Simulated assay, not measured.
Amino acid sequence: MAHTIHLHDPADPRLDDFRNLSTADRRPDRPGGRGFVIAEGTVVVRRLLESAYPVRALLGVQRRIEELTAELAPVDVPAYVTPAQTMADVVGFHLNRGVLAVADRAPQPHAGALIARARTLAVLESVGDHENLGSLFRNAAALGIDGVLLGPGCADPLYRRSVRVSMGNVLRVPFARLEPWPDGLGLLREHGFRVAALTPRPGSVSLREVRELDKVALLVGSEGPGLTEEALAAADLAVRIPMADGVDSLNVATAAAVAFYELGGAR
């Protein structure tokens, strides 16, 4: 069972895992980053506690820690309770959500293992914005996508902002790096997948025309530039979302959500 510890000194070394979270060296995707997984708010902390990621500690105000009593019962970790101002002094900013949890990383599956047990996958190229990436994972979880494969240029799904925007769903949806790029897409074909590149360019077919394929990997590119020519050439077909005249594209997470609904809903 988690042991509750009341602290008031922001300099207490037991709080070092939570210190100065807004500074660059605390980002796990930067050289020298600590590499921790950080959850913010009771909903996301619950998902972290339910996940395979080994939780190290919690930090929160009394009310938020009490809200997690049931989830903390089987967990042998410290739960540090501090006043809101002490928590802000430690973290480096005022946290409206009132509770944080920090965990070590867990091993991710290899791409081949993830592909072997899936029917519908998202494959991302150069999705470098943490908020877009978090939204993509939230949409994937909600709409029946079995996993996410990350190509070059993608942000770290376990960065704090991605975890928060995903509402903790990056902790639930399996993901793996797909290398080399784009030749690694051949691994999908070996497992019976068709690789469908989502693009508004002329010649692409309506997404609805591929709903009945048994296994589909939806290839999605970055906000703005979209997929590279190399990725498009490596795909089996190009698909688009039919839109009204005068609008040729959507935000990448929104476009992916529409596509996930079409593909996941059919399954």
Rank of each mutant, 00 (worst) to 15 (best):
H191M: 03
G60L: 02
R119H: 09
R211M: 14
I38M: 12
F93G: 02
S126W: 05
D248N: 14
P225I: 14
P31H: 04
A24T: 04
R56W: 01
A196M: 13
S22Y: 10
R201V: 15
A52C: 07
A176G: 05
G265Y: 14
L58P: 00
C154Y: 00
P225R: 09
P13S: 07
A106F: 11
R19E: 09
D16A: 12
G35P: 03
S135P: 10
Y261Q: 12
V37A: 00
G41L: 09
A259E: 05
V44Y: 04
E66R: 06
F137M: 02
G184Y: 08
V195R: 00
D214P: 03
Q62M: 00
A79G: 04
S51E: 14
D9E: 11
A266K: 09
G265Q: 13
A116V: 07
R34I: 08
D12A: 10
V45H: 00
L188A: 02
G221N: 12
G32A: 01
V239Q: 02
P10G: 06
G151L: 04
A79I: 13
A11H: 15
D248W: 12
P107Q: 03
D76F: 10
V75P: 02
G203W: 15
L59K: 00
A52F: 07
V102A: 11
S162Y: 03
P28D: 02
R30Y: 09
S162V: 01
S126I: 08
D214G: 07
V37C: 10
A197T: 03
A79C: 10
V210Q: 11
E67D: 08
A197Y: 00
